[in-house]
């Protein structure tokens, strides 16, 4: 009898320990596709949901695509934070979530990484993502925009930590290195030269001999130049909510 009870208890313990990681890795409360504005067909929704669910589970980071009909007196970033909080996104150990929110009312969008997702989606990566999904938003092709978003998320997760040397980087780094080296060796070379004419005779000024007898400052004319301020639809780099990282938002 005692042996049987022990076996049942051990089995229960084993089941409990085995279940904990399973629960942890499938912690996906909020829906990954939230189409409140009804911009996607049911087929598109299903296909996108399947893909984002898989990706979220694989990389332990919620990948969320949202459409809303209105921002309810909030801006797109505030609304993203609002959704993040009420929909319980980012329930992974380190609260990771990346959300693309689209609102058709005033054609707003916001791309926000939460928690440690900022590591995968720094502003430089966000800029590339925006270049890819924004044209679709402008054309009204919301599904393609979300697909581009999903593709880029996949790439960002895959590429994270991988050393990538873009040709432009190499050229830029080489140019900077060469210029710095030239400046450094020219400074070293200039140390070898110490023979030069004196520019003036400042060392031989008679102390206290300077006497200014006339001072006149005459205004002649003035010119005004104006340059347009740079326009930027996107605003990046702000922090919002409790765990939002540097993010981007704008209009399409």
């Amino acid at each position: 009898m005692i042996k049987r009870i022990s076996l049942i208890l051990i089995s229960l313990l084993l089941i409990t320990f085995a279940a904990v990681p399973a629960l942890a890795t499938s912690y996906m409360d909020g829906p990954k596709v939230l189409d409140d504005a009804d911009l996607l067909t049911s087929g598109e929704q299903a296909e996108l949901k399947q893909r984002l669910d898989q990706m979220s589970e694989k990389y332990e980071c919620d990948v969320v695509a949202v459409t809303v009909p209105t921002l309810e007196d909030m801006n797109s970033e505030e609304y993203s934070d609002y959704l993040f909080n009420i929909m319980n996104y980012g329930m992974w150990n380190d609260g990771k979530c990346i959300m693309l929110l689209v609102c058709m009312e005033y054609r707003d969008w916001a791309l926000t990484p939460y928690g440690d997702a900022s590591k995968y989606f720094p502003l430089s990566v966000q800029d590339e993502m925006i270049d890819n999904f924004k044209p679709y938003l402008s054309q009204g092709d919301i599904y393609s925009a979300f697909c581009a978003f999903a593709d880029d998320c996949e790439h960002a997760f895959e590429d994270y930590g991988r050393i990538q040397l873009k040709p432009l980087w190499i050229v830029a780094a080489l140019t900077v290195g060469v210029v710095i080296a030239f400046i450094a060796v020219l400074i070293m070379k200039s140390q070898l030269k110490s023979v030069r004419f004196q520019p003036g005779a400042n060392s031989y000024l008679r102390s206290g001999s300077m006497n200014v007898t006339q001072r006149r400052d005459i205004f002649l004319y003035s010119t005004v130049t104006r340059t347009p301020k740079p326009k930027n639809n996107s605003s990046g780099g702000g922090f919002g909510g409790s765990s939002a990282g540097p993010r981007s938002s704008g209009k399409f």
């Binding site: 031989y204 300077m210 003035s222």
Partner: peptide, 12 residues
């Protein structure tokens, strides 16, 4: 733009 005039003496 200004035209600035200075006059005086200095010894060397």
């Amino acid at each position: 733009f200004y035209s600035v005039l200075r006059a005086g003496t200095i010894g060397f």
